[in-house]
Amino acid sequence: TRVETATETAWISLVTALHLVLGLSAVLGLLLLRWQFPAHYRRLRHALW
């Protein structure tokens, strides 16, 4: 049971790290898009909202 718990903890930390990385890359990508294509971003936002 001790090994299982350790594996579970490792998986949880791995998944958390993955989610953090994905979230950060998504935010960075959005910022980059907004910085590179302001007109396109505004049009996209206008279409979405």
Rank of each mutant, 00 (worst) to 15 (best):
V3W: 01
A39V: 11
A39T: 13
R43M: 09
L44A: 13
A10R: 05
Q36D: 00
R43S: 10
L33F: 08
Y41F: 15
L28H: 00
S25V: 08
A10G: 10
G29S: 13
V27M: 09
A39H: 11
R2W: 14
Q36Y: 11
A6N: 06
L44W: 08
A47G: 03
E8I: 05
R34M: 05
H46R: 12
T9A: 14
T9F: 07
L20Y: 01
E4D: 12
G29H: 04
G23R: 00
R2E: 13
W11L: 04
L18K: 00
R42D: 13
E8G: 03
Q36C: 10
A6E: 02
I12N: 00
G29D: 00
P38S: 13
L33Y: 00
L24G: 05
E4H: 08
L18I: 08
I12E: 08
L22P: 07
E8M: 00
A47Q: 14
H19N: 15
W11K: 01
P38T: 09
L14N: 01
W11Q: 03
T1M: 13
A10P: 03
H40C: 15
H40P: 09
L33C: 15
A10L: 08
A39W: 03
E8R: 01
F37D: 09
R45C: 12
L44S: 04
L32V: 14
A17D: 04
W35N: 15
V15W: 04
R2N: 12
G23V: 14
L22A: 13
G29Y: 00
R43W: 10
T9D: 15
H19T: 15
P38I: 06
V27A: 03
H40W: 10
R45D: 03
R42E: 14
L14R: 06
W11C: 00
V15P: 05
L44G: 03
R45A: 12
S13E: 00
A17P: 08
V15S: 04
L32I: 06
L24F: 12
R42N: 13
Y41I: 14
L28I: 04
T16L: 09
L30W: 08
L31Q: 10
S13M: 08
V15E: 00
L48C: 07
L18F: 12
E4V: 13
S25W: 01
R2I: 13
L33W: 04
W35T: 13
A47M: 10
L44P: 03
H40R: 06
T5G: 02
P38R: 14
T5R: 03
L28P: 02
L28G: 03
T1K: 08
Y41H: 07
L31N: 07
I12D: 08
E4R: 09
W11R: 03
V21F: 14
H46D: 10
E4S: 08
E4A: 11
A6T: 10
V3N: 06
Q36M: 12
L31M: 11
E8F: 04
W49V: 03
V27C: 10
S13R: 09
V21S: 12
G29R: 04
T9C: 09
V3D: 03
S13T: 14
A47H: 11
P38L: 11
L33A: 07
Y41G: 06
L20Q: 05
R43F: 08
A39M: 12
A39D: 12
P38W: 06
R45P: 03
R45M: 04
R34Y: 06
I12H: 02
